[in-house]
Amino acid sequence: MSTATDLDRPAAAPAFQQVSTNRKTRNRIATGLVWTAFTAALLPLVWLLITVLARGFEYVLTADWWQKSFAGLTSRQFGGGVYHAIVGTLLQGLICAIIAVPIAILVAIYLVEYGKNSRLASAVTFTVDILSGVPSIVAALFIYALWVTTLGMPRSAFAVSLALVLLMIPVVVRTTEELLKIVPDELREAAYALGIPKWKTIVKIVIPTALSGIITGISLAIARVMGETAPVLILVGYNSFINYDPFAGSMASLPLLMNSERLTTNDVGEARVWGAAVTLILIITLFNLLGSLISRATSLKTK
């Protein structure tokens, strides 16, 4: 760059002088540091994934792992599977989503379509901000104080779902709000011009336009809450057999299973913990992929 050939060498010295070595060095150091920082982030990611796969992958390869529970097995017997925990994880995530998603979407609609700059809207925005920072253990304690102590209900999977609702709402509100904001106003105005009521405009025009993104957001949020451990520790007991009833009895879930079995200090406990870790990562990945697949299927065809 800096060397000119003889032919077009300027007659006078160029006004633009060389970049000093000092500045070049600083620039190089900065570039190096920035690349190092990125590599430093990838190192734990790769290390962690390799660890989990190396320690647990062999156990998830059997058919029993996906179809059976640990019922009837002692902590010294290999075999069995995590079907009971998969059921628990999915069930708790699903119940949570059924409660959280409508509320969250309505809140987002309020913020974008109705609230605008009202005082309630800024209060709601602030609440969503704070809620997204509430630690999962605090959400769990709140549900414990409300559901178990005050209302006298037993600890159950449903209580876990309620705690997860608190964690899921802010995530879904955020994504939905962002997506509704980018729906062009021309669409709304066209609908109004046709005499369509506002609520129907929102339900039939605005939401469908943003739907694919909302679905992605929801499945990401479900994937996130399924990995939460603090609520299941406080709000439900672990058991090693299959329980489909979210309102009664103990129900296993993958994080809870991992936390219980890690106290079994032998090869069997290790197999169960790392096998469950692989399973949990697979389920979370599946939900992430599912989200993008569904969103691709439901996205509106433009052009």
Partner: peptide
């Protein structure tokens, strides 16, 4: 972003 998708219990074990 994948770092954020890993559940914290797995971070703990790792």
């Amino acid at each position: 972003d994948l770092l954020a998708a890993v559940p914290s219990i797995i971070y703990g074990l790792w």
